[in-house]
Design a protein around this nucleic acid. Structure first.
Lengths: 192, 192
DNA sequence: CAGAATACATACGCGCCGTACGTAAAAGGA
DNA sequence: TCCTTTTACGTACGGCGCGTATGTATTCTG
């Protein structure tokens, strides 16, 4: 193929993705130019456009990767929680809060993503990852079918806002504790 | 002052605001140029920049106006609900859902605003309007102080997501019913 | 070992933002 | 009433940044 081998090409694409992730997380979608990304990844804009359709496409790839990383943590925690559905829901939900606030994913996933890739696409992304598990957990925990969709959406919104709120507080550990306690109340209510 | 009187100037500013509201609601912040707004308002970009600092400033004005309109509906409903704090909370919350999904404010306030004006500023806007009432209602309804901030944020997130979810469903009335029912569960939990 | 496909780099046009500058009309004072 | 200042725009310009077209050097593939 080109000046670099197929293996090196994958490396380039990955490097672009990593650089883009850092920049988008730090400055936000609108404040990062593709030239910024290219420079950080030590390539030209041509390389970026070769591997990704456009700026929104690159951002989508970044968001999708972060989403699946968070989802992995959620699933792992739920698995560790044993066989009880309610316990899995609790564990998974708390793991979600911890995972999404741990790194710098919050801004990308919860602030910029809805506007940058569109709310529908953002929803699909969430549904394909952690959102799906939330819905299944609620169903298995006995939530009625006619409330399932709405309750899933609202709990998801509550957790997302909790993550944003935590990320914003000065005293992170204390905020995290508060948020977890409040979340427990809402989860308990959902399972009434 | 200028070719138009002071009164006419206010009218111009208002017309720009109205046109911007429609366009932002229909296409989103990024897809609307200030030239689009100026044309719709039958003025030039110069007039827009005279009345608003920049594109973000115009958007902020649009969002602030929509927010206060929603907040007005919330307060009115809460007042009609009588003296009981819990009943006011219920009424206000449901009024919020109805008010924000009634018009075209959802996209502006819940999708574009956080990214366009920054999450902190968006939070301040919400806090200055409906968010403040939610917190107060929760406090008066007996929510412990150490949970108040986190619970306010999470319920706010739940309602916002519920609004987005409703706006997205094909069968709006049915979706609204579901959302209201689910919200009641969460509210009941908050007041445990 | 020749095409074909791939993996980039380079160059260009265009839209759009913000700003600087110009101008005409109204407010305000003497 | 006239002069000055301020207001309310309109116009013109520079620059950034996106997307696309084009060029070019490898490396697969038959």
């Amino acid at each position: 193929m080109p000046r670099a081998s197929a293996a090196a090409a994958a490396h380039t694409a990955h490097q672009v993705l990593v650089s883009a992730t850092e920049l988008f997380a730090a400055r936000g979608f609108a404040e990062v130019s593709l030239d910024d990304v290219a420079q950080a990844a030590q390539v030209t804009r041509g390389a970026v456009y070769h591997h990704y359709r456009n700026k929104a496409g690159l951002f989508l790839a970044v968001a999708a990767r972060l989403q699946s990383q968070v989802a992995d943590a959620v699933v792992a925690a739920a698995d560790r929680a044993g066989p009880d559905a309610r316990e899995q829901l609790r564990a998974g939900s708390h793991a979600f809060l911890d995972a999404i606030t741990a790194g710098t994913a919050v801004r990308v996933l919860l602030v910029d993503a809805p506007a940058a890739v569109g709310w529908q696409e953002w929803r699909r992304l969430d549904e394909a990852n952690s959102g799906r598990h939330l819905r299944e957990a609620l169903r298995e925990a006995g939530v009625a079918d006619d409330l399932l969709d709405a309750l899933t959406a609202q709990l998801s919104g509550a957790m997302n806002e909790a993550a944003l709120w935590i990320a914003q507080q000065a005293d992170r550990p204390a905020a995290s504790k508060q948020a977890h306690a409040a979340l427990d109340r809402l989860l308990a209510a959902a399972l009434t």
